[in-house]
Amino acid sequence: MKKSVILIISTLSLVAIILIGLLFQRAEVYNETIYVQKVVCTSIRIGDDYYDTFWNERSQRYLVENPEEPEKEAPLLFIDQLTIDVIYEIQPMDASTQTVTFSTNSDVSIASIEEATGRIVFYKPGIATFTITANDNNNESAKLKIRTKTLDG
């Protein structure tokens, strides 16, 4: 290839690199905040076992899914101090604030949830709703309902 052509290509490449660099530099001169648009409860964990959840439009809640019947709620067997971890995800995945806060307004004699970790403890059989709220000012949240029963309940 002629030297002049090589020189032109090299120069154009260098200019392109510089421009691209400037573009990315300019795009990063301030961090645009990406807000949470949705909080999704994907599953719960009890010990080493995971149970899917599904969104119920009528109740506006995530419910624990019966693995034998999709889109049907399954109650959990109550045992003393039944401990459940909430598994969730934030959308979009690159939201600037990734943390959430957990809460419940249900009867605390039935169940409680740790604000920071989302660990639930059931103290007696019953129904409780838990809220997962994103910590940015979009204030998006999702609610999870868990129903526990005894074998003879």
């Binding site: 076992d49 995971y50 034998e68 399954a74 067997l77």
Partner: peptide, 13 residues
Amino acid sequence: MRKGVLILPLIVV
């Protein structure tokens, strides 16, 4: 591991 003994059977209508 999924499912398991903690899911009660449902009576499906």
